[in-house]
Nucleic acid binder design. Structure first.
Lengths: 195, 195
DNA sequence: TTAACTTATTGACTTAAGTTAAGAAAAGCG
DNA sequence: CGCTTTTCTTAACTTAAGTCAATAAGTTAA
């Protein structure tokens, strides 16, 4: 099971046997049933996650409506915004499938960072990588219209569309479910008429 | 001049005199005239920046149109996506005002990280902070319409609106300049009619 | 298997952003 | 200072997303 994490981390640096053991020591695995809420609005967070299998969705309520912030699937890191802080969470984390996670907590993590600076170095590199990816996604979103955003999602994360209900996809794309329904229909027509 | 950086870093951890010296050693200051291009599309990047005074804009071209990605002002860190990597930049960095920057490069930075793990620790913490801020901004953007986005910018970064031309603000808000012009007019009317 | 509930689609209508084009205002420069 | 260039505004029109409401399709559980 640890193989997945090591493989992920190996993209960023050489993971020695020692480092591998350190990681194994400082984290643990956990299974969650579909529908499990990992974090609720208003609550503190003392866990961050690495998705081994399944899907986590972050969402919150705005004007009474559920807004999906992000979908996290295999090989993704989920660090709640208030992880290890004393501030309440502004959003929910929910397993939208049966999910297997690798879990860490700030106390052990900080101890490990103290002991093994290489581990913190790795975290820094990964954090910077995530910043870059976020900026790319944000820019893509900003410079696209809803139809283009849907096509982009279809291209870059096709399985998300299979795994999450459409009303969740819609708010993830910043539109209403009715609009997503229409966009799909419009695209179907375009496909057919171009045959 | 270094005071600004130290003050900024002090938000995240205690900056000892030693650490202060380390930072002073590993970076330098530089002045740029308005209009200076710090990084061009297609080029490599060997510098990251901390804005002491002035404003940097990142932008790129999509379908022949300039799209503003971000504005960086006083006390903000600018790390190009390809900083220290061997990949070409996808965007431009331009000083839209006379600007004073604190500049670092990856070679010295990595040396310093090796020598002073506390410095890398600080970088990790700041990087994670930036991730959280990005996610908040992205979510705000996604769940707002153009008018709300403009009002949000007016509230959170009013000086940007003074400092950048409107067509740049427009693309930053993901809309056309004509639309921003109309939004402003509409808001003026609302203001007046509510007196 | 049906009944209850959730999710998705469709239609009619409203609203606002995009597009194109023209002119006004402001900024930059010789 | 006046001329040029850039930026901003306005208008008319098109297009697509939001809204509201009804119905259809799919899911879940008694």
């Amino acid at each position: 099971m640890n193989k997945q994490i090591i493989e992920y981390l190996s993209k960023y640096t050489v993971i020695t046997k020692e480092l591998e053991d350190i990681i194994a020591e400082s984290t643990f695995f956990k299974n969650y049933k579909k529908g499990t809420i990992l974090l609720s609005e208003g609550n503190l967070s003392n866990e961050c996650f690495f998705v081994l299998k399944g899907c986590i969705r972050s969402y919150f309520f705005k004007e009474g409506e559920e807004k999906t912030i992000e979908f996290y699937t295999e090989e993704q890191v989920v660090t709640p915004a208030n992880y290890g802080k004393s501030t309440p969470s502004k959003y929910y984390l929910e397993c939208i499938e049966d999910t297997v996670l690798n879990v860490a907590n700030p106390t052990i993590e900080n101890e490990m960072f103290q002991k093994y600076p290489q581990l913190e170095s790795l975290s820094r590199i990964i954090a910077e990588e995530i910043i870059t990816k976020h900026q790319t996604s944000f820019t893509e979103f900003k410079t696209s219209n809803p139809e283009e955003r849907y096509l982009h999602l279809l291209k870059t994360r096709p399985n998300i569309i299979q795994r999450a209900p459409q009303y969740q996809i819609a708010s993830y794309l910043g539109i209403k479910p009715e609009s997503l329904s229409r966009i799909k229909k419009r695209l179907m027509n375009k496909m057919n008429s171009s045959i």
